[in-house]
């Protein structure tokens, strides 16, 4: 299928957001309407008078991609009744982690609870990249960002990453999944499944950002694989048949050491140089182990 997101947009080399959108739209097809939170994806794809979107697309602000999607869904319901039609385009809300985990969380929660037929896709690059790499509640422990800098009194971000897929699932909605752009078959299958429900669904897409994470731009896909193979990010899905029970869809045979993942990225460099930060490294390993236990991948 031809890409529904045109090339030639202004994304950085190796940008995972555009890879995410291309995979999602490939699975969704052209009968789709998208909303987009303010952020990298919005800015790089729609500098007036250009657009990269070959499907209808709407943006208004940062925190309201889900509220926008609910307005479109409501409009289609009403216009179908008014005009005697039965149009049911896929409605997909895109937002980065800032527009999902933080500023967009309230609108997301409201839309999920109201039960709109929509898929919310968060491409998670673990910081506010559009404003230049600031911490987000999606940023992991130990990560350097410009607002969680490393220094003599700091070792990067102190707090844990917010478990956003579990938060979405706690809304008791039909379908929640995690995915990674490095596993396109898995991601596309989840998009198709999500769109088959007559209600809200949520897809948390892990999206390694070469610019913000400080790794070479040709390594985007490899970095996503490394995250899954080290257990840093787990691919799973949940339905409301068994709420909050993750079913893992991509299970590595054995987990590679987490440090392989950390050492490949400049944002964790301070954990190794000038000397190893054993305290933070231990915290990160414990956090990964705890989350693997949570999804049943570790006893």
């Amino acid at each position: 299928m031809a890409d529904l997101l045109a090339p030639g947009h202004r994304g950085c080399a190796g940008c995972p957001a555009s890879i995410c959108v291309r995979q999602v739209l490939d699975a969704a097809g052209p009968n789709t309407i998208c909303t987009n939170a303010t952020g990298c994806l919005e800015v790089m794809t729609t500098p007036y008078p250009e657009t990269a979107w070959k499907v209808p697309w709407a943006h208004s602000a940062f925190e309201n991609s889900a509220a926008m999607a609910s307005g479109i869904e409501a409009a289609y319901k009403a216009l179908n009744r008014r005009n005697g039609t039965n149009k049911k385009p896929n409605i997909i809300a895109f937002a980065g982690d800032g527009g999902t985990f933080d500023i967009g969380l309230q609108a997301l929660s409201g839309a999920l609870e109201r039960g709109h037929r929509m898929l919310f896709v968060c491409y998670d690059n673990e910081a506010y990249m559009n404003t230049g790499i600031q911490r987000c509640s999606s940023s992991p422990i130990g990560a350097w960002t410009t607002t969680s800098p490393e220094g003599s009194c700091s070792s990067g971000k102190t707090q844990r990453k917010k478990p956003i897929a579990m938060i979405a699932a706690a809304h008791d909605i039909p379908y929640v999944a995690t995915a990674c752009i490095s596993y396109p078959q898995d991601l596309k299958a989840k998009v198709k499944k999500a769109l088959s429900f007559d209600g809200p669904s949520f897809l948390h897409v892990f999206a390694p950002c070469p610019t913000g994470w400080r790794f070479p731009s040709e390594k985007t896909i490899a970095m996503g694989k490394l995250a899954v193979e080290t257990g840093v990010f787990v691919l799973y899905e949940m339905t409301d048949a068994e709420p909050m029970k993750p079913i893992v869809t991509v299970k590595p045979k054995e987990f590679r050491p987490v440090e392989e993942y950390l050492q490949a990225q400049g944002r964790f460099a301070h954990l190794f140089k000038p000397k190893r930060d054993e305290v933070t490294l231990k915290r990160i390993q414990e956090d990964v182990d705890r989350k693997l236990k949570w999804v049943g991948l570790k006893p």
């Binding site: 509220a67 307005g71 409501a74 409009a75 309230q106 609108a107 929660s109």
Partner: peptide, 25 residues
Amino acid sequence: NTEFVPVESEHSAMSAAIAASATGA
């Protein structure tokens, strides 16, 4: 024919209104 959307805030009320109006409603 009307769809009443009991949004969770006024910000979302106007956001949903913008999207609905942009859909032709």
